[in-house]
Design a protein around this nucleic acid. Structure first.
Lengths: 169, 169
DNA sequence: GCCCTTTTCTTGACCAGTTCAAGAAAGGGG
DNA sequence: CCCCTTTCTTGAACTGGTCAAGAAAAGGGC
């Protein structure tokens, strides 16, 4: 019995239900999963699970403070169980992969705006944009190919674009 | 003649068109406008302007480097002309107001992740979440009203649970 | 253990923001 | 001024996500 997870839910003031346990399990396995990934993965344990149920569960988790929602620009929302430590994220521009980064300064709020313009700031969210190791390798390989293509010239193009494996989760 | 703005467009390698000049004007007036605001405002100068044209223009601007797109979680994308200085943003949780903040450390990339996990980072985006002055005032006024209501009322239970302030940072 | 109330899940419609596609119109170099 | 290219208009479509109503199931009291 997943008493541990049941406990986590109860601790958070949430009823223990199959969909919630399933989603919790998926989040434990996929530290930065989007709703769709969660639906798909959670259906292994609970086939009838609906997307709306997942949205509801996720909203409950976020509301109860056991999950955090992150929304990198241009990507669907991602959810993670690591909460309360104000860590930040590295996002790969080409494949969307996400990695955690500990808070730069340590404590939260980790950053203070130089001039808060009258705002009361309660969170500083940092997103580091860049390219993950895999995509760097791929990009390097591709640029080599382009070079070769130029050398060989007048041969038909090898369409390698759209490789984009979903290494998001 | 808006030679200045025409020049800005040409400088950026863009053709000068009426929709573009209109959008450029709106962005100059509204430093953090969303697509819808831009459409509405730009129609004062160019009534037949379509939303799709605006999306196209904005994409062109961003591509040409004369505008920047920001996407605060849970809000439509906003566009600003201030580019190239890697400044950051304060976002009001209750009304969505946005204010610019100069880069905390000065130069861009202003922050270096403690451990980049193999990523090559090219930008550090910081969003400060909080409450703007207006909303603070409003919230204060509202809490006073609630307090009065409690005092006047015949001692209904003062439900204080679920306060759970989002002190996530 | 069973009932009852409340919460949650299922099913299905709907919405906002944005993108895609095809043809018409406008920019601007020659 | 013409022609080619880019851009805009019009209209449809798509994605990620929300809303609403009824069915199901959680779990406290008996």
């Amino acid at each position: 019995m997943e008493t541990t997870r049941e406990h986590e839910l109860r601790e958070a003031g949430l009823r223990v239900t199959r969909p919630r346990l399933a989603v919790l399990g998926v989040l434990a396995d996929h530290p930065h999963a989007d709703a769709d990934t969660i639906v798909t993965a959670a259906r292994e344990q609970h086939p009838s699970l609906s997307p709306q149920a997942v949205y509801g569960v996720l909203k409950a988790f976020v509301g109860a403070g056991i999950a955090r929602r992150i929304e990198p620009a241009g990507a669907p929302a991602l959810f993670e169980l690591r909460v309360g430590d104000n860590h930040h994220h590295l996002v790969c521009r080409s494949c969307g992969a996400i990695a955690d980064v500990d808070c730069v300064v340590g404590a939260s709020p980790c950053l203070k705006p130089s001039d808060a313009a009258g705002f009361v700031v309660d969170e500083a969210e940092v997103v580091f944009w860049g390219m993950c190791r895999d995509c760097q390798v791929e990009a390097a390989a591709e640029s080599v190919q382009i070079e070769e293509r130029h050398l060989n010239e007048e041969h038909d193009m090898i369409e390698e674009h759209d490789i984009r494996e979903g290494a998001r989760a």
